[in-house]
């Protein structure tokens, strides 16, 4: 009845996605709450989707499919979050999916009328993977509010493709599918510009990054992992252990239970 699937662990979820259809590209849809993400999801997948049996899309991962030029895409609608720093359950779910389910492309839906807040999430996503496209949604509302957005400049600042859309009316979605397909097929390689932190942090990151690289074996962005380890985020340690099979010393586990942080 869908309930069991929705409430099962993410690990099982990821496996179910990957074994679902080997020839299908896995696309993650991320975005702030209320940025029109669900509208984009609905507009892309139409009726080919599995949703829960209840109103609301607060905590379930809806998935849907669409095809573009003969290619098959499976779209996963992640919970709406402001950040990926894992300080809430939604953020943890979104982050685990982006980092460990290895989606072929991440679409970050952005509310054009509230760019500043929404870019915060984009900047965090591009730290984890370069395979990102920004869907600049709600362009109609931005126009109504007489906001002018310099899309090429935004794209240049982020180092990512940016597609302006009005998902409600289907505007811009063809272009979005085209870019997604290009990134998924390896034709387009975005080169995101990551945020630079203060000198002390950067120095530490560079040291750790080098050491982490051989260990992570390309599964995860080493710079991103280094940053999470530095800020003392505990769930990342558990995730590394669980998903990449890294054996971690016992004292970490003790630390975790002591602080009462659960995944």
């Amino acid at each position: 009845m869908g309930l069991t699937r929705a409430s099962s662990g993410l690990n099982a979820l990821r496996e179910s996605f990957i074994s679902l259809n080997a020839s299908s590209f896995l696309i993650a849809l991320a975005g702030n709450p209320n940025c029109g993400k669900s509208t984009v999801f609905n507009a892309l997948t139409g009726l080919k989707q599995h949703t829960g049996n209840w109103p609301g899309k607060t905590v379930t991962l809806a998935r849907g499919r669409y095809s573009y030029r003969g290619l098959d895409f499976t779209l996963v609608d992640l919970p709406g979050t402001y950040s990926l720093l894992a300080s809430s359950v939604e953020e943890q779910i979104a982050r685990q999916f982006i980092c460990f389910a290895h989606p072929d492309v991440v679409i970050v839906v952005v509310d054009a009328t509230c760019l500043e807040r929404n870019l915060n999430l984009v900047l965090q996503v591009l730290e984890t993977t370069p395979r990102v496209v920004v869907c600049l949604n709600l362009m109609d509302e931005a126009r109504r509010k007489k906001m002018l957005i310099d899309v090429p400049l935004l794209s240049q600042e982020l180092g990512l493709p940016v597609v302006p859309t009005v998902a409600r009316d289907g505007e811009g979605l063809e272009k979005l599918k085209e870019i997604v397909a290009a990134i998924a097929a390896g034709i387009l390689h975005p080169a995101p510009k990551t945020v630079r932190y203060n000198q002390a942090v950067e120095a530490a990151v560079i040291t750790l990054e080098k050491q982490l690289q051989p260990l992570l074996n390309g599964h995860l962005n080493a710079r991103w992992v280094a940053l999470r380890l530095l800020e003392g985020e505990l769930s990342i340690r558990q995730e590394l252990e669980q998903h990449l099979g890294l054996a971690l010393p016992q004292n970490v586990i003790q630390l975790k239970t002591k602080k009462g942080v659960s995944a």
Binding site: Y82, S83, L85, S87, S88, E91, R117, N120
Partner: peptide, 11 residues
Amino acid sequence: GFTRRRLLDIG
């Protein structure tokens, strides 16, 4: 701790 992180995260 946790409260500080959440407050920072919301901006």
